[in-house]
Write a protein that binds this DNA or RNA. Structure first.
Lengths: 198, 198
DNA sequence: CGGTTACGTTAATGATGACTAACATCGTCC
DNA sequence: GGACGATGTTAGTCATCATTAACGTAACCG
């Protein structure tokens, strides 16, 4: 009755459940600070059960980061190909990053800390997606600030990410509802200032 | 002749050397991703030699973070007690953080990632220093933006830290020389925007 | 000199942890 | 009703690692 229809249905849920739990733990204690047993315990199974779903701890991390960087990149690409004005596009990009950071702080944290623990085949791919994501931003910024050299735009983009991803650190200070417009306003202003000569 | 005068002189150097090497390694691979043997190798001695200088791995981390948070807090306190106008004070605070982030990226990285691995007696003290540091900022910001609720100021402060500490991520994009004014301008603008109603 | 102190070294030792093996359970499908 | 596949379980196994032990060495001090 309450049992599940298809095994496949369950498999997906369990995998997602594990990935979510692992993200939280990795964000809190770092990849090497979390054991397979810890992750299992977090979803109510114990230890080696995880090997029914992932080929290993590193594979789990790889899938997690690949998923995050794909989603970010796809969202950004969608926004950009919508081809509105650069101002509106920038706003949409800001929304993508802000909403993601507010809704998935653990994933964001892991995403920019643990790439070094992903084994080589997939590491390259994640890097590639991250780079593409940054380039979407840089392209839009270049339209808004023509004449600003790309390295400067890239550095500014990273700085804005740092600003937006600060969310996990100020957890509890402000509600997500209040955080969103604050981050938005600060990011916009910071971007505006990045155009100045220096 | 080239031998050292006092043993105490050498001890300090070695300790500092170890702390610096450990900071770099911790920043790159995380506390649990670095072994005592790794740290020893980085300074040319091997493994257990470190126990001549530190009582253990956690103690090493604790001293490192205590040192960073003390220095930041002291610098901020000095700037604030200088009692110039709030605008100038804010500029000086920005300089403190920017220079530190540009000159010691590894320390900054470890400082906001690895507090969780410091054992309890000292963890509390580090937290206290970090809180005091933030409060120096909040006090100054409150003067500049009266009527802005403190939680909002705190969130804005953390966001600015995130922006400034992005340096390790954009390493290589821009020289420190070019980075400094960029970060400064972006941070000032972001702070200015944080006052708006939201 | 003889002893102490500072600093290293190379072997244990004892935990912890990733991963594997061998063995259930239990729907689903024929 | 029995085979199968998906999913767990518990008991190894084998590395890695923090920490300790036991043992040099060499500078300095008396």
């Amino acid at each position: 009755m309450t049992t599940v229809r298809t095994p496949t249905r369950n498999r997906g849920n369990r995998r997602a459940e594990i990935l979510a739990a692992a993200a939280t733990l990795f964000a809190a204690r770092g990849f090497h600070g979390v054991s397979i047993e810890d992750i299992g315990a977090a979803v109510g199974v114990s230890g080696p059960a995880l090997y029914r779903h992932f080929s290993g701890k590193e594979a789990l991390l790889a899938e997690m980061l690949l998923d995050v960087s794909s989603r970010l990149r796809e969202s950004a690409a969608a926004v950009v190909t919508a081809r509105t004005g650069p101002e509106e596009t920038l706003d949409a990009l800001l929304d993508v990053q802000i909403i993601f950071a507010l809704e998935q702080p653990a994933l964001i944290t892991v995403h920019d800390r643990e790439l070094g623990n992903v084994p080589e085949p997939q590491r390259r791919q994640i890097r590639r997606l991250q780079r593409l994501y940054v380039e979407e931003w840089v392209t839009v910024l270049a339209e808004l600030h023509p004449g600003c050299p790309p390295p400067r735009l890239r550095a500014a983009t990273h700085a804005v990410f740092g600003l937006l991803n600060s969310t996990p650190h100020s957890a509890g200070e402000l509600s997500a509802r209040a955080m969103r417009p604050l981050l938005r306003a600060m990011a916009r202003a910071a971007i505006g200032a990045s155009a100045a000569t220096g």
